[in-house]
Simulated scan of single mutants.
Amino acid sequence: MNGARWKPNVTVAAVIEQDGRFLLVEEHTEAGLRLNTPAGHLDPGESPAEGCARETLEETAHAFTPTALIGIYMARSRHAPDGEDVTYMRFAFAGTLGAREAGRALDEGIVRTVWMSADEIRASVARHRSPLLLQCVEDYLAGRRHPLDLIHVDASVR
Rank of each mutant, 00 (worst) to 15 (best):
residue 65 T to C: 08
residue 128 H to Y: 09
residue 29 T to G: 15
residue 121 I to T: 08
residue 38 P to H: 13
residue 51 G to R: 11
residue 151 I to P: 08
residue 12 V to P: 09
residue 127 R to E: 08
residue 8 P to N: 09
residue 73 Y to D: 00
residue 132 L to W: 00
residue 12 V to Y: 02
residue 154 D to G: 14
residue 84 E to W: 15
residue 23 L to E: 04
residue 131 P to Q: 05
residue 143 G to F: 03
residue 135 Q to N: 10
residue 36 N to K: 14
residue 30 E to S: 02
residue 78 R to S: 03
residue 35 L to H: 07
residue 128 H to W: 11
residue 77 S to A: 07
residue 96 T to K: 05
residue 116 M to E: 01
residue 100 R to Q: 15
residue 47 S to N: 06
residue 77 S to H: 08
residue 10 V to K: 15
residue 46 E to L: 14
residue 76 R to D: 05
residue 87 T to P: 02
residue 29 T to D: 06
residue 125 V to I: 13
residue 64 F to E: 04
residue 135 Q to I: 03
residue 46 E to P: 13
residue 34 R to L: 02
residue 112 R to I: 06
residue 116 M to I: 08
residue 76 R to V: 01
residue 82 D to L: 09
residue 69 L to I: 04
residue 73 Y to C: 03
residue 63 A to P: 01
residue 16 I to A: 06
residue 103 G to N: 11
residue 51 G to F: 06
residue 7 K to C: 08
residue 90 R to T: 01
residue 63 A to H: 05
residue 81 P to D: 06
residue 158 R to P: 01
residue 119 D to K: 13
residue 105 A to D: 14
residue 120 E to M: 15
residue 126 A to K: 15
residue 60 T to I: 07
residue 128 H to F: 09
residue 101 E to G: 08
residue 28 H to N: 08
residue 83 G to Q: 10
residue 97 L to G: 02
residue 66 P to S: 05
residue 120 E to I: 13
residue 33 L to M: 11
residue 110 I to H: 12
residue 13 A to S: 04
residue 31 A to R: 12
residue 155 A to W: 03
residue 102 A to L: 12
residue 57 L to N: 04
residue 47 S to I: 07
residue 12 V to G: 04
residue 55 E to I: 07
residue 70 I to G: 02
residue 131 P to N: 11
residue 26 E to W: 07
residue 90 R to Q: 00
residue 49 A to G: 01
residue 62 H to A: 14
residue 71 G to M: 09
residue 122 R to E: 10
residue 113 T to Y: 11
residue 37 T to L: 04
residue 60 T to W: 00
residue 53 A to L: 11
residue 48 P to T: 06
residue 19 D to N: 13
residue 80 A to D: 11
residue 37 T to N: 07
residue 75 A to F: 10
residue 58 E to D: 07
residue 5 R to E: 00
residue 155 A to L: 05
residue 40 G to P: 03
residue 24 L to Y: 01
residue 61 A to E: 12
residue 52 C to G: 09
residue 43 D to P: 00
residue 149 D to T: 05
residue 148 L to I: 04
residue 155 A to D: 01
residue 66 P to H: 06
residue 100 R to E: 13
residue 23 L to P: 09
residue 154 D to C: 06
residue 64 F to P: 03
residue 48 P to C: 04
residue 43 D to A: 02
residue 124 S to N: 13
residue 88 Y to N: 02
residue 123 A to P: 14
residue 133 L to G: 12
residue 75 A to Q: 06
residue 86 V to S: 05
residue 45 G to P: 10
residue 57 L to R: 15
residue 30 E to W: 14
residue 25 V to W: 00
residue 52 C to H: 09
residue 46 E to G: 01
residue 1 M to T: 09
residue 50 E to M: 12
residue 133 L to V: 07
residue 51 G to C: 02
residue 50 E to R: 15
residue 137 V to L: 03
residue 101 E to M: 13
residue 50 E to F: 12
residue 127 R to S: 15
residue 131 P to C: 03
residue 7 K to D: 00
residue 131 P to F: 01
residue 96 T to A: 11
residue 158 R to E: 00
residue 31 A to Q: 12
residue 109 G to R: 07
residue 130 S to M: 08
residue 10 V to N: 02
residue 66 P to F: 04
